[in-house]
């Protein structure tokens, strides 16, 4: 506790002679919401357009997801128990498991988990600890597929901040994992998914 008291005392002493302390500015967080290039007919339209602009894959409906899985000739992956039935119905040839083994991370071609929301403004998917289980299944496989209820698309980031709730790990995902560390060249799929899908149902 010695360091705590020392630091707080230094802060107080350092601030003591501040002639005028800057007040907290009154402002509307909407000032941080970006303008869009044109009108969109729905939040889903805006979200999908934005998600594509960051190289994400927005899909509408289970059938679209079935087509995606078949086109990529995927065989094996993890699926949240909540969705196994729906997935089996649209893509019967898949071998899906409800068990994610952390010692065999690279066996899973994809992970299907829930998203808790989305931000239309930026094409962002919102994952939470309570909804997205387990953490590694949404992170380690090359393809992550987030399942989202259409009503959970929020207009902008200030709205999403109001919905943080009491979840201990809220993650905003805007496109696939990427880096430009090597000569500024964009490479996708560094530690997280190289393909980021969001399927609205």
């Amino acid at each position: 506790m010695k360091d705590r008291d020392t630091i707080l005392k230094r802060v107080r002493d350092g601030l003591a002679e501040t002639p005028e302390r800057t007040p907290y500015p009154e402002y509307d967080p909407a000032c941080a919401v970006m303008r869009q290039p044109h009108e969109f007919s729905s939040l889903w339209e805006l979200f999908a357009w934005r998600m594509k602009s960051v190289n994400g894959v927005p899909l509408h409906g289970w059938n679209a997801l079935g087509d995606f899985l078949r086109e990529r000739a995927l065989k094996f992956g993890y699926c949240d128990p909540e969705y196994t039935e729906a997935i089996a119905a649209v893509c019967g040839s898949l071998d899906i498991t409800e068990r994610f083994d952390r010692n065999d991370l690279d066996r899973y071609e994809f992970g299907i988990t829930a998203a808790a929301g989305a931000i239309a403004e930026t094409g962002t998917i919102v994952l939470t600890d309570a909804a997205t289980r387990p953490r590694l299944a949404a992170l380690a496989p090359w393809i992550h597929i987030a399942i989202l209820q259409e009503d959970d698309i929020w207009p902008d980031s200030p709205t999403a901040l109001k919905r943080l709730g009491d979840d201990p790990s809220v993650i905003w995902v805007t496109g696939p994992s990427k880096t430009a560390d090597v000569e500024g060249i964009l490479i996708e799929g560094v530690h997280g998914p190289g393909v980021q899908v969001c399927c609205v149902v």
């Binding site: 930026t122 953490r135 790990s169 993650i171």
Partner: peptide, 24 residues
Amino acid sequence: ATAQCLTVYTQFIGGPRHRTQRDG
């Protein structure tokens, strides 16, 4: 920093993992 609208992953961490979560 990088001319992105948002960085790819923005994490809001409010403590140890959720009681229903296996990882973390």
